[in-house]
Amino acid sequence: MARRVNLLGAAVFVLALVLWELLVRTSVLDFTYLPAPTAVGEGLGELLANGELLGALGHTLFAALSGWALAGLVGVAAGSVLGLVRPVWTYSMASLEALRALPIVAFVPVAVLLFGFSVQTEIMVAFYAALWPIMLNTISGMRTEPRMLESGAVLRLSKAAVLWKIRLPGATAMIVVGLRLGLSVSLVLTLVAEMVGNPAGLGFLLVEKGQALQPGQMFAAVFVIGVTGIVLNGLVMGAARLAFRGQMASSGEAA
């Protein structure tokens, strides 16, 4: 299916911005600290000019991506073991489900307690947040279609070959979904850790600008965070399509 440019949608988006601008200018929307889109644009310019934005973005990305990458390694490894070795699954899944019920944000204060106001806190929080979706998706991805395994058996594939050629590729699409979910939650949780823990990065920038009563710059930071999320997600998808062309295409993920 060819993807056409959604002109109507873009027009509505722009129109909404114009409306917002007008409502603020005419004081119909009367909040003391609600900036108009133009003020947000100015704020973005200021943040870019004084270099604050790029520094903060770099810090947040470093923390979120480190935690996420760590979670990717641990999550895929643990998820594979849990998905492939039945006794391990039987004797630990309920514990994992009990732990998963703990709302992840509630862990942020614990991490601050353990690791102090440091970048380690951020990385640990990002790691913990991303671990769950990655591990759980890997587990369900390892539930291979039994007929595929039988096909491997009748063609007399070795155990290693079945794992490498059938099980793992079969799980790839699910693992990528886990990685994408994991990346977005680790970004969110890194921001939270920066707001309440380590005073650095985009999360702290938001809080700081709020306290300094600079709504324009603050909204600009929110905008940048939103765009960062979209870009990161796109990068993961693009990389996955490049590396695992067949797997992604067969799961309907091809563009």
Binding site: L187, F219, A221, V222, G226
Partner: peptide
């Protein structure tokens, strides 16, 4: 992300 909306 929801977290970024909080301070705003």
């Amino acid at each position: 992300p929801a977290a970024s909306l909080v301070p705003v």
